[in-house]
Design a protein around this nucleic acid. Sequence first.
DNA 1: GGGAAATAGGACTAAAATAGTCCTGTAAGG
DNA 2: CCTTACAGGACTATTTTAGTCCTATTTCCC
Lengths: 151, 151
Amino acid sequence: MEFIRRNTDYALRALSYMAAHPVGKIFSVAEVAQAEQIPQGFLRKIFQKLARADIVVTHRGPRGGFALARDPGDVTAREIVETIQGPIAVNRCLLGRDACERWDTCRLRTGWIGIQEGFVAFLEGVTLKSLADLQYGSPGGITGTVPPESR
Amino acid sequence: MEFIRRNTDYALRALSYMAAHPVGKIFSVAEVAQAEQIPQGFLRKIFQKLARADIVVTHRGPRGGFALARDPGDVTAREIVETIQGPIAVNRCLLGRDACERWDTCRLRTGWIGIQEGFVAFLEGVTLKSLADLQYGSPGGITGTVPPESR
DNA sequence: GGGAAATAGGACTAAAATAGTCCTGTAAGG
DNA sequence: CCTTACAGGACTATTTTAGTCCTATTTCCC
């Protein structure tokens, strides 16, 4: 059981690759796919979703490709994850009152909310910039909002 | 994207229903399925997994059924979740060194480990006994080991 | 300007995971 | 010892995930 699916992992890797290069540079899918070892067609489809979410901008035709739409420091991992695999919910009941008829009485829900918020907070603390820095091995690594007791 | 799948949710509900009754009582699948609104055949299959993990014991034939194998206070939600949906891994790379060729260089992995440990710690803190108590609305609810900043 | 080539768009297909059904085997009780 | 109530587990259906391939657009070269 994995929280982060293949395509989300690809997205994170592809975007941080791009973030490690000068702002505004246009990348072809082929280049990024080769650099990060991702099936080309699949990556193209992933970029389509990212484009609709205004995370990248597209340029068609020869010499076209994709570029980051915003400053890498302004794009969070949470945004990327939710763009690719939809709203984060530890359990179905956290998607809304209608998802479970026991919504009112189930007290376990409170617990689910807690871990979900921890997860989201972590993803909020990770930006494309921090990911790109990691690729170069800058000191410190990701510490962000990881709960203290799990460090 | 949900971390807890349907069958795991069913297992948690069925087991806490059983934990809310006298220890040693044998339940037929039909009874629990009706009480918790779970498809009978599906629940039976879930119980099979739980039986192999020594969480319940089975009795075949008429007047047979399933009973909790252990004290409800000794069975954690973590155990149940892992029995039903396998090892918990935020990302594929946390399943082992072989799952990703970048294992050594990827520094994001450290972050994944942090949130995963938080999640597992929460599940460790929840037992069948605490779940059953919740069903009766005992005060306090689940607070367990939820990270402080997410309360 | 027109056509070849490089590129993204998006419909389509394949594979895997998940959810659920149904026939078979076992044991209790009359 | 036969009927019946139950779990075992093979099987099927559905949904999700992953991946491919044909179509449309734009540039650049002639």
